[in-house]
């Protein structure tokens, strides 16, 4: 019994320790006392800096990590491919496209001789998740529509969904690039920074509008966990378990899309998280579906927190965006995993 508790409790504990260490690390030095006081009431000095800047940022990192990891988990199971990830599937591309378009539109609408009232990125923060969702879901629907197969093999084959997704993702990324490069120079620089996947200046006002989506996503994935679990089996076994495949697959993909898109709304497209995390979970031997969901949440959060902290300290005072770190770490890790995958 205590073995089970330990199994489940180990992960949040890991994340907690990592977060506390991350609170301590940064370009302005801090002590453990500062970290302690930052969590209290009205922190001053260095503790105040931790409370104002690192605490919200790490919270955002945790949420982003959860979103992308779960999205990746769902996609890998539904698409039957251990190499699926929202950033290459087109979900992030779609979300990015709508957000960048909105940036372009809002900047164009700002009258020159007048001023700009505050809102980060010139777009009201509350709307950002919805903009991202529209884009992400549209891209997903496009992929689903294009991969719908008529005739004898009715439904969505994982093969076709994957390949369509990759191509659509590539198209969307190309369009985003073209759009970004056609904006004025300053906006282009800001857009490129955003597209790298960044937690710079993120605080609770970025996080709170997204939390409902976190909740919805988590509830949905728990409710659908039986179907998800069944989808890991081959088609016939799944059907014999009474799972409606034709419904479950697209539904789950939509859940993945919402999670990924709302993650994009906070930090932009942070790559590789969805790809790696479920695989790490599998490699360390996680089998049971509910446990897998649990573990993925925490590993995802830990990965993003660690990457963000690394990005904050390696080139100080300049920050390396978290999306770049996850991509750069992710690739060699991914290579290792792939080798193992092929060998087994």
């Amino acid at each position: 019994m205590s073995g089970t508790v330990l199994k489940w409790a180990a992960w949040p504990l890991l994340l907690l320790v990592l977060s506390i260490v991350s609170l301590r690390m940064g370009v302005t030095g801090a002590s453990w006392a500062d970290v302690w006081y930052s969590l209290g009431h009205a922190p001053q000095g260095q503790a105040g800096i931790i409370a104002d800047y690192r605490l919200p940022r790490i919270s955002a990192a945790i949420v982003v990590g959860i979103h992308f990891a779960l999205a990746g988990l769902i996609m890998q199971i539904v698409l039957r491919n251990p190499l699926a990830d929202p950033t290459i599937f087109g979900i992030s591309g779609g979300a990015s496209l709508t957000i960048v378009s909105a940036m372009a539109v809002s900047l164009a609408l700002v009258p020159t001789d007048q001023t700009v009232s505050a809102s980060t990125d010139y777009i009201p923060l509350g709307i950002l998740p919805y903009i991202a969702l529209v884009g992400g879901l549209s891209a997903t629907l496009l992929v689903l529509a294009l991969s719908w197969e008529r005739g004898p093999g009715r439904g969505f084959s994982p093969q076709r969904m994957t390949l369509t997704g990759v191509i659509i993702g590539a198209i969307l990324n190309a369009i985003v690039m073209a759009l970004v490069l056609s904006m004025s120079e300053a906006s282009t620089e800001l857009a490129i920074l955003w597209l790298a996947g960044s937690l710079y200046a993120r605080d609770f006002s970025h996080l709170l509008p997204t939390l409902p989506w976190t909740l919805i996503g988590l509830v949905a994935i728990v409710v659908l966990s039986r179907s998800l679990s069944a989808l890991r089996l081959d088609v016939h076994s799944a059907q014999s378990l009474g799972v409606n495949l034709r419904l479950a697959r697209p539904l789950l993909i939509v859940v993945a899309a919402s999670l990924a898109a709302s993650g994009v709304a906070i930090a932009g497209p942070v790559g590789f998280v969805g790809l790696l995390v479920p695989y790490i979970a599998k490699v360390i031997g996680v089998r049971q579906m509910s446990y897998q969901i649990w573990v993925c949440c925490f590993i995802g959060a830990a990965l993003v927190v660690a990457s963000d902290t690394l990005g904050r300290i390696i080139a100080a005072p300049v920050e390396v965006p978290v999306g770049i770190i996850t991509s750069l770490i992710g690739a060699p890790l991914f290579a290792l995993i792939l080798n193992r995958n092929l060998r087994s």
Binding site: N81, L83, A196, G271, V320, S327
Partner: peptide, 27 residues
């Protein structure tokens, strides 16, 4: 296999991230 396709895309992402890193560090 799809392995190749997705490996290629992952490698692309890696190098584009490296390019982004360069662009951000040297404006």
């Amino acid at each position: 296999d799809i392995q190749m396709v997705l490996s290629g895309v992952a490698v692309s992402i890696f190098f584009l991230a490296a390019t982004s890193a360069l662009m951000i560090l040297e404006r």
